[in-house]
Amino acid sequence: MIELSLTDILSFLLLAARWTVFLSAIAFVGGGVGALLLLLLRYARPRFGGRFMPVYVEFFQDTPFLLQLFLIFFGLPKLGIDVSPLMAATIGLTLYATAYLAEVWRGCVDAIPRGQWDASASLGMNFVQQMRDVILPQALKISIPPTVGFLVQLIKNTAVTSIIGFHELTKAGEIINNATFQPFITYSIVSLIYFAICYPLTHWSRRLERRLTPTGHR
């Protein structure tokens, strides 16, 4: 057992928390772009995109994220592609985020009444114009709570990447615990750091949701 000061523990954990934030941010942005592409494909080319998206989404929603991570981390090297824990974590979380965000946003786009498509089409607008000026601005508003909800989920799920040895917050907590044998204090601090990252997001989403509602609009 090694004696470590609270400051030592805290700084070690906070440095590792940077990787949690970094990984979440990359996966969220990458997943957002991926989801948007899947969605555009689905609505612009229903014959192909409408079939491809559900298959993709089902696969990632109905298998454990840990197994998806194992497939990438242990599977890809067998195919001759060498992946670091960071690489595997990034790819895994991005593919996973793509599936969930695509599904969340599809629900939001589908919630926009058919009349909005009809009216914009009847004015001669093409698909891109309809999406950009009519459908997405309305879908965006209703998508904020579930999207931020998912982001919080994603941040917490980065903890799973500690299993393949990626050095993020949870992994750092494990290292500290192995050195100090003080699981209660260590994991309390780890939890508090996760809370400190996630709570402001939830709070901010509520504020943003209110601001995007035009005055007098239901």
């Binding site: 009349g115 909005q116 009216a119 914009s120 009847s122 004015l123 009519v134 309305q138 508003k141 609009h217």
Partner: peptide, 12 residues
């Protein structure tokens, strides 16, 4: 041009 039963104005 077309006018619909449910108006279909853009609410945003």
């Amino acid at each position: 041009g077309m006018v619909f039963q449910q108006f279909n104005l853009f609410p945003h």
